[in-house]
Design a protein around this nucleic acid. Sequence first.
DNA 1: GTCTATAAATGGATAGAC
DNA 2: GTCTATCCATTTATAGAC
Lengths: 196, 196
Amino acid sequence: MPDRRTERHEQTREEILTAAWGLARGQGVTGWTLREVAQAVGMRAPSLYVYFASKDAIYDAMFAQGYRELAARLAAMPELDDPVDRLRAGARMFLDFVVEDIARHQLLFLPVVPGFEPSSGSYAVAEQVLEELRSVLLEAGIDGQSSLDLYTALISGLATQQVSNEPGGTRWIGLVDQALDMYLASELPASDARHR
Amino acid sequence: MPDRRTERHEQTREEILTAAWGLARGQGVTGWTLREVAQAVGMRAPSLYVYFASKDAIYDAMFAQGYRELAARLAAMPELDDPVDRLRAGARMFLDFVVEDIARHQLLFLPVVPGFEPSSGSYAVAEQVLEELRSVLLEAGIDGQSSLDLYTALISGLATQQVSNEPGGTRWIGLVDQALDMYLASELPASDARHR
DNA sequence: GTCTATAAATGGATAGAC
DNA sequence: GTCTATCCATTTATAGAC
């Protein structure tokens, strides 16, 4: 039952989030204010409260939006037959996703916004993405919590080093194949880890 | 030439930094104010400016102090004959160091304080620690920028996952031996990577 | 739905008396 | 060196007119 009213409302919410993302990218995740967001969408700050209950609510919507985008890219990936190829392609996609937006990386993966905790609804989106990763690993024959945790540490470690020490560069994310060779040689039950 | 005057001055600076660390641990790296620090040391906020030129100057001193502490722990490590043993011990030390203080981890290793850049002097301390790591790897027979970068990504990845997703736990940092086995099997030129 | 006006608070930082 | 007083900017958020 999305009548015109609620449709327009949702559209304005999107505009606000887009403006917030733009400011977050330019000035850091926590470096923007409601006034600035309002100005960017042609409003005054108080009007934002029609669309979001608080600044944290905006953060929460951004968090969910970020994970939905990640899920979408996961879903849009080419269907590769070899599960190991899928794992490699997924890792590259993830690293591209992370380094293209430092603010998003911090909001989604690091506890940098004081006091912000994603709502259960937003957190569910994040969980879903992790669940997909688990199944890709499983299809590749890699099972168990510790193997999954080692994988997330390795790949997210590349990402975090990259954006923390050389934003915009490729010094760490360029090591993804080397990292995956290392990981697969160790975690893959049987033979051929090498596919490029 | 440290007369009583400057000695006392330095002592007060230390007190201020200790108070700032305490607040940062309790309320997040960016979650404390000059007023709170001042109160913690029995002063009013303006008096802090006798000891530090700005809040960023306090961050800078904390940054240098954090890395000096890390360097000190590095220096205090038992002298193990096997370079691979030294590497393993160093990794465990580093992970303990990181997880015992989330605020310090964020300040030293992640770009979470908007606008803060360490001064060249403070940055030099950080560089020195990294240089030590480079030499430990080299003694183990591991050379080259990419091997070093892969190592930092792997170990810091474990640390960051731990403090971001399960602060206080051991789910990721407990994988350090598994991670090092994996790393050494891949990067060590010759045979035995396994020592425990 | 958007505005003006403003609350109510907080922030870092400075001036100048003591 | 420490204080009071205060500046000045800024913040999130609310009340109520239009």
